[in-house]
């Protein structure tokens, strides 16, 4: 057991996976000697060599495409894209190839790759460094999308993503990289990639959140508890496929739901989750499902990012709204 940050947990999981399986290779910009701009790959190159921890030329489409080729040829590539804002160039490869290679060859070739990228706002970074594109990835058939919210979750989910036989986009909340520490046991145990986690039990309203928004949801739940209102908080963790059983079981219990995402509202995962609840739990609902999202704006530069992102206050306000719904 060690008390570590989320980014240290990523590093620990990568080292563990590379130690246990020599087909695991890490590639990306600055991942080698520099250990990644967030130090997620620190020390890996000196331990596993420059062939298995490879600094690539600066080309995101190449990185994703090479990972497809490596995976099809039997390696387990873990590619890093420096920031989610630069991962848009990988969508061509993820959508046209990674997600469909197994299907279009009817199982002849497969694509066990992981594409990791720091995601979200809140670190006062330059333009294009604070994006939340999870819904774009979740729209792609044939892949999985995972978004941890804590060090222990990051460790277990990343191990699972690397072991998974299909492509996984692994989004890391950069705001939580060093926000808090958690006891993590480096025992190599993966977490399931098809399960959401109930992280706080409650009776009055269900919060569904992921990544950095989970902390805001927990803060909001704390605020409401002081008012005698009890929120159940779910960490979705895997955004594709979504564990609706856990979400629906909670909503059927509480009758109210607030879905929280840092991404723009239109066509967000919050919309998808809200629609599913309406379809499958309408008669359990005591109020319409509320979405708490970022605005449908360009992710602003950092002077305005606090106003752009949902926070505990915005979530608590939405919770009061659904609880007071007549």
């Amino acid at each position: 057991m060690s008390n570590i940050t989320l980014v240290e947990a990523i590093n620990l999981a990568l080292a563990r996976a590379m130690e246990e399986d020599e087909s695991v290779v890490v590639l990306g910009e600055d991942v080698g000697l520099n250990g990644g701009v967030f130090r997620a790959t620190a020390g890996l190159q000196s331990r596993f060599g420059a062939e298995r921890v490879a600094d690539t030329p600066l080309a995101e489409g190449l990185i994703a495409g090479m990972a497809v080729g490596m995976a099809a040829e039997g390696l387990r590539p873990v590619a890093e894209i420096q920031f989610a804002g630069f991962a848009y160039a990988t969508i061509d490869q993820l959508l046209n190839h990674a997600g469909r290679l197994r299907h279009r060859t009817q199982g002849r070739l497969s694509c066990p790759m992981v594409l990791r990228t720091p995601c979200g706002a809140g670190i006062h970074a330059p333009e294009h460094h604070s994006e939340s594109p999870e819904a774009m990835f979740a729209h792609i058939p044939g892949i999985r999308v995972v978004y941890p919210s804590s060090p222990s979750r990051a460790y277990g989910l990343l191990l699972a993503a690397i072991q998974d036989p299909d492509p996984v986009v692994f989004l890391e909340p950069s705001r939580l990289y060093r926000r808090f520490k958690e006891e993590v046991d480096d025992d190599g145990t993966p977490l399931p990639l098809d399960k959401a986690f109930v992280v706080r039990e409650g009776t009055d309203v269900t919060f569904v959140a992921w990544g950095a928004m989970l902390r805001e949801a927990l803060d909001a739940a704390e605020e409401l508890a002081a008012e005698g209102r009890f929120a159940e908080v779910i960490d979705l963790a895997t955004l594709k496929p979504i564990d609706f059983e856990t979400v629906l079981a909670s909503v059927k219990k509480t009758g109210r739901c607030v879905v929280i995402t840092e991404a723009p509202r239109t066509c967000s995962l919050a919309s998808e989750i809200s629609a599913n609840i309406s379809e499958q739990a309408l008669l359990s609902l005591l109020a319409p499902v509320e979405r708490v999202t970022a605005f449908d704006c360009v992710t602003p530069m950092f002077r305005l990012e606090e106003k752009y992102m949902p926070d505990a206050a915005r979530i608590a306000a939405a919770a009061r709204k659904v609880m007071e719904y007549q």
Partner: peptide, 27 residues
């Protein structure tokens, strides 16, 4: 010929795959 890649319609997107395949071979 089970290791060969399938027909590739999007233009040029198979070239990064070739680099990845060749990287695996070299490794």
């Amino acid at each position: 010929s089970p290791r060969d890649f399938p027909f590739n319609v999007p233009i040029g997107t198979q070239l990064p795959h070739a680099a990845g395949v060749a990287y695996a071979m070299k490794l």
